[in-house]
Amino acid sequence: MADKVSQRFERAAWRVEDALIAAKELLPKGLYRSPPPWMGYIFILPGLLLVSFLFVGMFILGFYSFLTHDPFEFIIYEFTLENWERLLGTTGYYNIFVRTIFMALLITAISVVLALPYAYLTIRVRSSLVRKLLLVSLFVPFFTGVIVRAYGWLIILGRNGLVNSFLGLFGIEPVRFIGTQLGVVIGLLQIMIPFAIIMIAPAIQNIDRSLERAASNLGANRVSTFRHIIIPLSLPGIAGATIVVFTITSATYAIPALIGGGQVDFVANLIYRTLFDIANWPLAATFSITLVLVSSIVVLFVFQVIGTGTLGVDTGENDE
């Protein structure tokens, strides 16, 4: 029975292949015998179009940031500087931007520091069982999604949560995490550390082990080997991790919304409220453009200082 099905499937596959070949024969011969260079552009066209939503979208955002908002008409296509003046002139908005950048920098720094030893041990540990455990604890959270993990943190950090129940055993007063910066930092770190590890690991993978052995033969202990060999050689990975973690953190929404409980708003929360609570799309576009500008400046700064690192796409043409 199964044989028959697979036979039939095979025959169908042959027929599709024949039809494709017949269709191909209709094209001019040169096209497939020796593909002209412009075929490459046709190949990348669908991808180009797909990403053009965002590319064109950036210009549309810029355009929108100069439009007039009207509570009744929604958007009036009249140019104004009002949105930009509002952004620059409102202390509340300014504070949210400063908080976002500051927290993103803090979380980037801690994530990179914690990710380095994690990535190092994952790659260098001899026991394959330990390596598996480290890989699983890295990828399971990565694939669990932000919302479920934020929910987990609410259960852990809540007033009657895991941490406070544990502290209660020792008669310690409940600590407030929900609605505090500390709670948001904890939640964000758990999301960002896996990203940092994934970006740093390839750089450590590329470090020649004999360098470490040479250092230790020359009398360096583990700490100074780490400082003088591992850290400098994993700089490309650190650059990649810094950029990825900073960009994602500065645009984060779910953790400040759920763990921060409206007390520790990031720019993303501000954008969302502007879009849906006061339905001011031009102002939301202004915030969005500013967020992109600010994070691009940080990214360019990192590029300047440490280079593109593991972020650059390897086209395999570097060895020519």
């Binding site: 549309i60 955002l61 645009a251 929404y253 939301a284």
Partner: peptide, 20 residues
């Protein structure tokens, strides 16, 4: 250009797609 979806913050991609 092809890395643009990673470099544009997700919330901004959301705003762009909402507008378009």
């Amino acid at each position: 250009y092809f890395l643009l979806p990673f470099t544009v913050p997700l919330v901004v991609s959301g705003v762009i797609l909402l507008i378009i």
